[in-house]
């Protein structure tokens, strides 16, 4: 394998409900930095049905080139069809680096592609860098349940691949009218070669605001004692117009569903305001919310580690503090509105 043959930073572009998912735009932002450092181009690989027009969005977010596989065979994500397309694209154009969002789709695809190429794959990266002269990707990630950070290298294989946690990298602000090069490709895979069928897709409707997209997340922990006690979290979230988050212990106790879980094995969130109520602040929780704009902790134990990771802390009983806050907030907010009128 001659490394000189490999160049360019690629991002696998994930599409959902006809739109590019946020993590793919974040990765174009991160990829742009790597590409600039290497003096090479940034490309997106766009796979799906009726997706070609999305290339315009990708240029605006930094892509120089977009490889597109637009075909009904790609209507739903399936490992075998997407993997085939990406493998063929890779073999033809030989990128130096491929980044994927660490989503259920991205992780599934990346693991399969890495095995077939074969090459190394760094999982769930949160920090990316590249050596200017050698092109060696420095992908760092939490491991051992968040207890350590490790930098993973792939010295002897190309492309170098990594999945990257959503909400960790920053998308560039879009540059309207920026354009790039579209390269349309077709994959050799046929429907009869694919051994899986998507029979149905079921979306949860109960979830009002997705916690990883909300500006305000009100999260509660095991300290609230019971599903009934956890109601104060729902109340505050509703009052503020925010989303409900939870620690893993709360999810395991069955008070809320898993898609509310923040942390290492849940979602990474970066809201503008994050409330941690009755959450002790285990490292596995912290890694999922530490980049939030303003972190407010309410905990009755003054020694709780969560205070080490918060901007503002209140030592007190959640059942006293939170209802009071809701009441004052409602009053103040009404007052403000009246003032403006």
């Amino acid at each position: 394998m001659s490394f000189e043959d490999y160049s360019g930073i690629w991002v696998f572009i994930e599409v959902k409900d006809g739109e590019v998912v946020p993590v793919s735009l974040e990765l174009l932002g991160a990829g742009k930095e790597l590409a600039d450092k290497r003096g090479t181009e940034l490309a997106g690989v766009l796979i799906g049905e009726n997706v070609t027009h999305l290339a315009d969005t990708l240029y605006e977010y930094g892509a120089d080139t977009v490889y597109v596989y637009d075909d009904t065979i790609f209507k739903n994500y399936r490992t075998e069809s997407y993997m085939k397309a990406l493998l063929e694209c890779c073999q033809k154009y030989k990128p130096e680096v491929i980044l994927y969002g660490a989503t259920s789709t991205g992780k599934d695809l990346a693991s399969a592609v890495a095995t077939d190429l074969p090459t190394g794959l760094t999982a769930d990266s949160t920090i990316l860098d590249i050596e200017e002269d050698t092109g060696l990707l420095l992908a760092s990630r939490p491991a051992f349940g968040g207890n350590i950070m490790a930098t993973i290298l792939c010295k002897k294989y190309r492309p170098q691949m990594a999945t990257v946690r959503p909400k960790v990298m920053k998308a560039l602000s879009p540059e309207p009218g920026r354009t790039g090069q579209l390269i349309e490709e077709t994959a050799s895979i046929k429907e009869e070669d694919i051994r899986t069928k998507v029979l149905e897709i079921v979306q949860f409707t109960t979830q009002k605001v997705r916690i990883d997209e909300a500006d305000i997340v009100v999260a509660g922990g095991k300290g609230l004692g019971s599903e009934k006690g956890f109601q104060v979290v729902h109340d505050l979230a509703e009052t503020l117009g925010g989303a409900v988050g939870a620690s893993r212990d709360v999810v395991e106790a069955g008070w809320v569903e898993h898609h509310h879980q923040v942390g290492q094995t849940g979602l990474t969130v970066t809201p503008k305001i994050y409330f941690a109520i009755g959450i002790s602040g285990a490292i596995q929780h912290i890694v999922g919310m530490q980049n939030s704009g303003l972190i407010i902790a309410i905990n009755k134990d003054p020694e709780a580690p969560i205070f080490q990771s918060s901007h503002y802390g209140i030592v007190g009983d959640a059942f006293e503090i939170v209802p009071l806050l809701i009441q004052q907030f409602k009053q103040a907010f009404n007052q403000e509105v009246v003032d403006h009128v």
Partner: peptide, 15 residues
């Protein structure tokens, strides 16, 4: 293909 090159304790945001 992958090598763990460096390991460190994550920095916690300060209180």
């Amino acid at each position: 293909p992958t090598i763990v090159s460096k390991v460190w304790a994550p920095t916690k945001p300060s209180g």
